[in-house]
Nucleic acid binder design. Structure first.
Lengths: 227, 227
DNA sequence: GTCTATACCCCGATAGAC
DNA sequence: GTCTATCGGGGTATAGAC
C-alpha cells in the first residue's frame, strides 16, 4: 500500500514538473501576461481540465513559476558569494556577476520577477520570501564591511533599514549597520537597473553587447561601497 | 474647399487623440500585453472597425503610445535639467528627480517603455529616437564635466562610447568624453533600476515609500560622477 | 467614415462520464 | 485523474451596407 502511494506521489510530482516546464516554455513564447493553462495543456497533450488537478488556477501556476525563478536567482547569487575565504570585494562582485549571468541565461524568468508586474496578479508570502534571497545574500557579504562615512541617516531611512535587518533575523545580513543596509539596497537597485537595461533592450545600439559595460559597472558598484 | 478639408483634418486629429487617451486608460487597467482595439472602441462608444480607420493594427496603436511615453519622459527631463545658470550638480539631480516624478505620475507608461518588452512587439526608428531624449538630456548636462580619473577605458567601451556621441551629433551631449559617456550611462541604468524597483514593487516592505531612499540615491549618483 | 455582421481564433473554469 | 463538452466570455481583422 505504502509503495503504491509512493509511486502515485512520484507520478504526481513528475507531471507537476512537466507542467511547470511547459509553462516555462509558454513564458518564453508569449510572456507572463498571456500565459494560459490551455496552451500548457496543449503542449503536454492533456485536456486543460486535467491541468486544473495540479494547479487550481492560472495564478497558482504563475506563483509556482515566480517562486521557482526567485529561488534559481537566489541560489545562484548565494553560491557565488559564499564565504570561502575570498575578500569581501571578490565575494560581492562574484555575486553581482552571478546575478547578471543567471538573468542572461533565463531572460524570461528574470523578466517575470523583475520586469513590469503582471496586471491583476498579487504575490504572497512565499514569493516575497523567495525574492529576498538574492539581495539578502549580497547584504550578508556586506554585513561586516566598514560602515563608511557615518553620515547621519535621515530618520525615515534608518527606520526602514532596521526593518530590513529585522527581516534578516537569523542570517548574517542581520549584523549590517543601517548605513550599510541603505548603501547595499542602493547597489542592489543599481544592479537591477544594469541587468534590466541590458535584457529589456535599453542598451541597443549603444553598450550592447554589454559584457564590458557590465563588468565595469560592477567594479564601480564595489568602489562606491568602499570595498 | 480648403476650409472643409481643414475641418475634416481637425476632426480626424481630435478623434485620434481621443483614441490614444482611451488606449492610455486601457494601459492603466489591463497592461500593454492585454491592450485591445475593441476595449478602446468600447470606451469611446465606437465600433471596433471604426478605430481601424485610425490605427491600422493593434501594434500601430502600441507604437503611438510608446512614442508618446518616451516623449513625455524626455520632455520632463529636458525641462528640469535645462541650462539656466544652475550648477552641473543641480541640473543633474533635477533631471534625475524629474525622471522619477514623471514615472511615479505615469507608472503604466513608464512600465510600457522601461519594463519587460511586450512579447512579439518590435520597435522602430521612431521609438528608439524618442527613447534617447531623456538619457541624452542627462548626458548633455554631464558633457562639460571633468572627465574624472582618466582610467584607460577598455577598447570595446571606448568604441561603444564613440557610437553614443556620434548619435548625439548636433547636440551638447556630443562633446562628452568617452569616460563621461560610460559613467553617464552607468548612472542612467542605476536610475532606471532605482525607479523600476520602486514602481515594480521590489521595495515593498523595505524602502517603500521610497522618497527618502530615492533622494539619497540621486545624491549618491551625483557624488559618484564627481559633481 | 461609421455601422452591423461575420470568420475564425483565444481564454478560465466547471460538469459529469468513464 | 483524465476525458469530452460546455458556459460565457475575450480577441484581430475584414466585408459590405449606409
Amino acid at each position: 500500500m505504502s509503495a503504491a502511494l509512493t509511486a502515485r506521489e512520484r507520478a504526481r510530482r513528475e507531471l507537476t514538473a512537466e507542467i511547470l516546464g511547459a509553462a516555462r516554455h509558454q513564458l518564453t513564447d508569449v510572456g507572463a501576461a498571456a500565459l494560459s493553462v490551455r496552451a500548457v495543456a496543449r503542449e503536454l497533450g492533456l485536456a486543460s481540465s486535467a491541468v486544473y488537478r495540479y494547479f487550481a488556477t492560472r495564478d497558482a501556476l504563475l506563483t509556482a513559476l515566480i517562486v521557482e525563478a526567485y529561488d534559481g536567482l537566489g541560489a545562484a547569487v548565494e553560491t557565488a558569494s559564499t564565504d570561502d575565504g575570498r575578500s569581501t570585494r571578490e565575494r560581492f562582485t562574484a555575486g553581482c556577476t552571478a546575478m547578471r549571468s543567471w538573468a542572461v541565461a533565463h531572460p524570461h524568468e528574470y523578466a517575470l520577477v523583475h520586469g513590469s508586474p503582471v496586471p491583476g496578479y498579487r504575490g504572497d508570502a512565499r514569493t516575497t520570501a523567495a525574492g529576498s534571497r538574492a539581495p539578502l545574500a549580497l547584504l550578508a557579504v556586506l554585513a561586516d564591511a566598514a560602515p563608511g562615512p557615518a553620515s547621519a541617516l535621515p530618520a525615515v531611512l534608518a527606520e526602514q533599514a532596521a526593518r530590513v535587518t529585522a527581516a534578516a533575523a537569523g542570517g548574517p545580513a542581520q549584523r549590517a549597520s543601517p548605513e550599510v543596509v541603505v548603501a547595499g539596497a542602493r547597489a542592489w537597485t543599481a544592479l537591477l537597473g544594469l541587468v534590466s537595461a541590458e535584457l529589456f533592450g535599453q542598451l541597443a545600439n549603444t553598450f550592447d553587447p554589454a559584457d564590458a559595460f557590465a563588468a565595469a559597472a560592477v567594479e564601480a558598484l564595489a568602489d562606491d561601497l568602499g570595498l
